[in-house]
């Protein structure tokens, strides 16, 4: 599974854990996060994330 890193703060989205802070269930792929999802660490929008393989 691809990893996605926040360009602003370096937070790595781990799809296995999801994002409990925003109510994103475990096993949610990055692509399926809602468009208005933001980085739980710094509030950056989804388009501030880069795929790192």
């Amino acid at each position: 599974m691809d990893r996605y890193v926040c360009d602003v703060c370096g937070y790595v989205y781990d799809h296995e854990k999801g994002d409990p802070v925003s109510g994103v269930a475990p096993s949610t792929p990055f692509e399926e996060l809602p468009d208005d999802w933001v980085c739980p660490e710094c509030g950056a929008p989804k388009d501030s994330f880069s795929k790192v393989g």
Binding site: D36, V38, G43, A44, P45
Partner: peptide, 9 residues
Amino acid sequence: MPFRKIIQK
């Protein structure tokens, strides 16, 4: 301004 997207929400 940095939080424009979530402000929309």
